[in-house]
Simulated assay, not measured.
Amino acid sequence: MLLNISFKLMSLLGVYALSSAAIAHDANATYSDPAQSYRSEFVDVATLIPTALFDIRYFSGQNFVGKPIEGYNAPKCLLHKTAAAALVKAHSQAEQAGYNFKIYDCYRPQRAVDHFVRWVNDETDTKTKAAYYPNLGKDQLLGDYIAAKSGHSRGSTIDLTLTDSQGKALNMGSLFDMFDTISNTDDPRITQDQQANRYKLKNIMLAAGFSPYAMEWWHFTYQPQAYPNTYFDFVVQ
């Protein structure tokens, strides 16, 4: 009898140890294999919010690189299911106030971020400078504006704006992905109306659990992130 009890106790302890190890590993790992089961935790936001507008810039050439970005095989907004559920709530609040969402980017594969970094390091390619970084050199973009590891690759961050009921984007005082301090949420150069528009978006997102990024009025991250230490690399398709 004692032998059986000891054996059962050891088995339970073994299961507990394995579970604890799995949790610890999950908190610090980086997953890049698209075959991983983690991909199934991401949802296509258009299936949840079909009335939102989707202008996925990195699928097209309308972005600061000037061409489609690696890893975007479809113009989709993918988010981890927890962030997606919160976005549904935010969109409902926006609709009640008479607005809609126009979404620019969501989950971003690591290979897309690598594409950005290669572009930054190519000093000969400056064709988008006038539109996206008129007051900065490319050597000033890495860090605050373009990171070698992006929070978007974790699956809980989204770039978006508000539109009116006719689909016209509200005047936010700067373009999406404008690399300049004028894109800071509280930049003093924007008008009162432009600041009010930025705060309409900010307050809607805050109420749904998203944290803003002060340097980019369009950038929000749902908290808590499902994978705060993970940078995924499966393609958007």
Rank of each mutant, 00 (worst) to 15 (best):
N73Q: 08
D159L: 05
A131P: 09
N63A: 13
E70I: 07
D125N: 06
G173F: 01
K76Q: 07
D125C: 14
I204A: 06
G173T: 10
S156N: 04
G71F: 04
S153F: 07
Q237C: 15
L9K: 11
I49D: 00
G61P: 14
L9R: 01
L142E: 15
I56S: 00
K138R: 12
C106R: 09
I204D: 08
L201H: 13
Q194P: 11
A94Q: 01
T47S: 05
A131L: 12
M178Q: 09
E70G: 07
N28Q: 14
F116D: 10
W119Q: 15
F179C: 02
P50M: 09
K8R: 03
F176C: 13
L79C: 09
Y222C: 12
F232C: 14
L141P: 10
N135Y: 09
D105L: 05
T128A: 08
L53D: 00
I190N: 15
K202H: 00
L3K: 04
D177K: 05
T157S: 12
Y199M: 07
Q194Y: 04
N63T: 15
L12T: 02
F232T: 14
P212K: 12
T221G: 03
A169H: 03
W119D: 01
A94E: 03
K149R: 04
S150G: 07
S32H: 13
D114M: 06
A90W: 10
A147P: 14
F116Y: 14
A46M: 06
R39K: 05
E70C: 09
W119C: 05
L160A: 11
R57F: 11
E70S: 12
G209N: 10
T47P: 01
M172R: 03
E41I: 13
V113N: 00
Q192T: 08
S19L: 04
A169Q: 14
L3E: 12
L141Y: 06
F176D: 14
G209M: 02
S11H: 12
E123K: 02
L201Y: 07
G155A: 03
A112E: 06
L53E: 00
D125Q: 04
T191V: 15
G173P: 07
H115C: 01
A35M: 08
A94R: 02
Q110F: 06
D164T: 11
A112S: 12
G151M: 01
K149T: 14
R198H: 13
N135W: 06
A46K: 06
L87F: 15
A130G: 11
L53T: 00
Y213T: 05
S40A: 12
A147F: 13
F54D: 00
A27E: 02
Q223K: 04
Q93F: 03
D33T: 05
S60D: 09
S211T: 10
W218E: 12
L78Y: 05
E216Y: 08
D177Y: 02
K67P: 07
M10F: 13
F210S: 12
P134E: 13
N100L: 15
S150I: 00
R118I: 14
D186S: 11
D159H: 08
N4L: 04
V43Q: 04
H115G: 15
L9A: 13
S19Q: 14
Y133R: 00
A112T: 00
L9N: 10
G98S: 10
L142D: 08
P212Y: 01
V15R: 13
L53G: 00
L201W: 08
Y38W: 05
D186Y: 07
A147N: 02
V88G: 11
E95S: 15
A207Y: 06
A90C: 11
H25N: 07
L206G: 04
D139H: 09
